[in-house]
């Protein structure tokens, strides 16, 4: 890397600081809002607690003490739905990705080869959700899956698999086959080679798939709204529900949003170095 000139550095840092500000300001605003009384919001913007308004912890207390059980139930529901579907999607997706990377398929009906199959799988991600909501609701009530964790896990798995297949297939394409082949020669079964050799080497890919799946399921709103009624309702639906006839409860929305975002950001911080590496895939080297 050549040395940057001073103005290039200045520009670089300016851009970085500016974009950090754009990114972080809404989070800061949510934070201050969660400490405000209604009048602090409806009578003009107040910026800094203690400086231009007297903050209150009562909204946090309401959510975590009086309503603690409800808040935690929704949090747990989100967690179960998101992690369940993430595990399934990573497993099923990496299997399919491996299959598509290592084997040649040619179906008779329809006459599809690997690329067509891959495209079909990925295209599932883009089906208009409105097409699914009503039939799913009917299907689910017939099967007794409405308002269950399993129900949400199934839908989210369905939407996470395509992304998982796409990333993992690319990833496996960059992995040399030599290692598996020598394992196979040494008498390992294909499955053993996959689990013991290929998957460990694919950790970055698996991590980025897992994070994307988790974030998607964690934040999904439409299906969660329609397919849950009570027991299995997730955080986004709870957040959306803070708009009632008493006005939009900005302080609750803010506090709940921060609560929902915190664990994902922490996980993101811990696994940051994996994410980009995982997505590197075979995208460039052709």
């Amino acid at each position: 890397m050549t040395r940057r000139k001073w103005w290039q550095s200045a520009l670089l840092y300016a851009v970085v600081i500016f974009w950090c500000f754009i990114t972080l300001f809404p989070f800061y605003w949510l934070f201050t809002t969660s400490l405000k009384q209604p009048l602090h919001i409806s009578r003009g913007p107040k910026y800094v607690p203690f400086v231009d308004y007297q903050p209150t912890l009562e909204h946090w207390q309401y959510l975590f003490r009086e309503q603690g059980e409800t808040t935690i139930r929704h949090f747990r529901n989100s967690f179960i739905a998101a992690s369940g579907s993430t595990i399934l999607a990573v497993l099923i997706g990496s299997m399919a990705g491996y299959g598509l990377s290592r084997f040649r398929y040619s179906w008779r009906i329809p006459r599809w080869k690997n690329n067509d199959i891959a495209f079909w799988i990925i295209s599932q991600r883009f089906l208009p959700p409105a097409l699914f909501v009503v039939p799913f609701l009917m299907l689910y009530s017939a099967l007794g899956l409405v308002d269950t964790h399993i129900g949400l896990i199934i839908v989210y798995t369905m939407f996470n698999i395509p992304f998982a297949v796409w990333i993992m297939r690319d990833f496996f394409n960059t992995l040399p086959t030599d290692l598996e082949e020598s394992a196979l020669v040494d008498g390992a079964t294909r499955w053993q080679a996959f689990v013991r050799i290929v998957l460990p080497l694919s950790a970055p890919g698996l991590v980025s798939v897992a994070i994307f799946s988790f974030v998607f399921s964690w934040n999904e709103f439409l299906y969660a709204l329609m397919l849950t009624n009570f027991q299995a309702i997730t955080m986004p639906v709870l957040i959306a529900a803070q708009n009632n006839t008493r006005g939009i409860q900005w302080w609750f929305i803010s506090a709940l949003t921060l609560t929902a975002v915190a664990p994902v950001v922490i996980v993101g911080l811990l696994l940051e170095r994996f994410i980009t590496r995982g997505l590197v895939a075979g995208a460039i080297k052709g």
Partner: peptide, 16 residues
């Protein structure tokens, strides 16, 4: 990670 944070917020909350 800071750059990625917006993605981690549920769209409902982003809209609010």
């Amino acid at each position: 990670v800071i750059f990625l944070m917006p993605m981690m917020m549920t769209p409902v909350a982003a809209a609010y």
